[in-house]
């Protein structure tokens, strides 16, 4: 290309210098963008690296099986917080999953387009609500004495679980809706033509076809609320020991990390790192394994169109951006 330009000039020809400058600029921008990408992924590496570095040494049998030692003493564990988190997340899922999944089924299987977009807008608004605000709402309903007919009157596991459920509902609704929309209409028509009742088509054919995607969405939502701290601060409150009932304050892993992190005790800091490592391994582990699990299944399917976004892609994108990426397509 450069050889003829040296021998003969023609209209519209660009000079060698300009061409080189343009190429150089392009290379520079490529380099800068590459640096950006490196900077963006660095925090993940740093956080993960430090957690392993500072937390792994404290992971031992006691840590997973014992209650905290009295303030000032060294040792003890956080079994109550791990169990507490499990209880809170399970309760939240028990409330959030049916609402989210059935609501999404209504949108894709029954609703008209206007109502559907109305609910979708509502869910998107809810997805944008800061998680701390959900804490206030759960507090007003369940903690504040006489706040509502359902009020427990004090901090409780129920209030914490409800706050987490509020976060899960719009998230699960949106991800489930996404995957239900990916179920081809041909299946619905084929089932209808067999004289199968609509509700059975929804539950046993459409939802079942999308089951993997729905489950992925649910588990990603679980991973997200498992790490939520803000909505638990004044609902579940935290607890330094076991709680006897769901109407009592309950410990949770993120709350424990927060309490330990801002405390003045070195041993608590050490445990905060360890607890954070446990939580991060759970959250990232769930994210990573869901990713790889769904990928593998998709590629194993015959005739899968690799260009088309898979159900898993849709779900991950929706969760990662809390419903926002959906409008982009």
């Amino acid at each position: 290309m450069s050889a003829p330009s040296a021998s003969k000039s023609y209209p519209g020809q660009v000079s060698e210098g300009l061409r080189r400058w343009r190429k150089g600029k392009s290379a520079l921008v490529t380099f800068l963008c590459c640096i950006c990408a490196v900077i963006v992924v660095t925090p993940l590496a740093l956080v993960f690296g430090y957690l392993v570095f500072k937390g792994a040494g404290s992971l031992n049998w006691d840590f997973f099986t014992k209650l905290p030692a009295p303030v000032g003493e060294v040792g003890g564990g956080i079994v109550h917080a791990i169990v507490g988190s499990m209880i809170l997340v399970t309760l939240a899922a028990l409330i959030g999953v049916p609402v989210g999944v059935l609501g999404a089924l209504y949108l894709t299987e029954y609703s008209g387009p206007r109502f559907a977009s109305c609910v979708r807008l509502g869910a998107d608004i809810l997805n944008g609500v800061p998680s701390i605000v959900w804490g206030i709402v759960a507090y007003a309903i369940l903690v504040l004495p006489h706040g509502s007919p359902f009020s427990v009157g004090h901090f409780s596991a129920i209030a914490g679980a409800i706050a987490l459920a509020f976060i899960m509902i719009p998230l699960i609704l949106r991800t489930t809706e996404e995957v239900l929309l990916l179920v081809p209409n041909g299946y619905r028509e084929a089932a209808l033509a067999l004289g199968i009742a609509r509700w059975k088509i929804s539950a046993r054919i459409v939802a079942k076809t999308a089951l993997r995607g729905i489950l992925t969405g649910v588990l990603l939502a679980v991973a997200r609320v498992a790490g939520e701290t803000a909505p638990l601060l004044f609902t579940a409150l935290g607890n330094s020991g076991w709680s006897q009932s769901l109407k009592e304050p309950i410990a949770a892993l993120p709350l424990q990390i927060f309490t330990y992190a801002i405390s003045p005790y070195d041993d608590w800091h050490r445990q905060a790192w360890a607890a954070a490592l446990v939580l991060l391994l759970f959250v990232l582990g769930l994210n990573v394994s869901l990713r790889f699990f769904t990928r593998e299944r998709v590629s194993a399917q015959p005739k899968a169109d690799s260009d088309k976004p898979t159900a898993a892609d849709a779900v991950v994108a929706t969760v990662a951006t809390r419903g926002a990426a959906v409008q982009v397509q």
Partner: peptide, 17 residues
């Protein structure tokens, strides 16, 4: 996307120390 999955409190812990 994994960076988005890190719980806020963990990032806070890392930031403090």
């Amino acid at each position: 996307e994994m960076l988005a999955a890190i719980p806020s409190v963990i990032l806070g812990l890392w930031a403090i120390f």
